[in-house]
Amino acid sequence: MKNWMKIAIGLWIAAVLAVGISMPIGYIPGLGAKARIIYFHVPMSWLAVLAFFMSMWYGIMYLRKKDMKHDIKSASAAELGFAFSILATLTGSIWARFSWGSFWNWDPRETSIFVLLLIYGAYFSLRSALEVEERRATLSAVYSIVAFVTVPFFVFIMPRMMTGLHPGEGSPAPILNANGKMYMEASMRYVFYASLIGFTFLYIWLFNLRSRIGLLSYNNHTEID
């Protein structure tokens, strides 16, 4: 990634932060200014799920091509996804303290991010329990695929069967709802999309860095052996 792109990502996210905090938002019943978390918390959750998907994707690539490069990318994606899901959990939990009264309420979405954290944790425990590199790559790829097919049960099915606390449950939810539409004011929506784009590019940058480090250290220690 070119230097100007890094600077552009930094400026873009800084601008999104400034606009997101300062821009007046319309009246939202029950939330008010607390609705601003949508600019940061939702992109983080989105990256946590995207990273999980990428990890599975590179896992499938590894199983097809048997190239260690793909395994390193799969692990890098999972590491970043773990970091972002911790961030999403923390920001959401602090927000929940002030909106719903306690840090953790077992709302369906809280349950699903908790399961995502558990899956990432299990994935890393499995990796550390396998010593042979090819075996570690194959089995962790298989595990990430099995784990990924159960995620739709949490993200899409459970929240519809149980009532939850997330904004708009009951009435149409702003982002993930059964109609597949966004319910947000136009100005808020632009900032939200801008933030989503900024965070996605940040993720791509971090992912490139992490997988390059992984590749270099892999090449390094295979040369020594």
């Binding site: 558990l118 299990a122 425990s125 499995l126 784990a147 159960t150 459970m158």
Partner: peptide, 8 residues
């Protein structure tokens, strides 16, 4: 490893 898979 089993718990997250079995949770649904």
């Amino acid at each position: 490893l089993s718990f997250p898979i079995l949770l649904p």
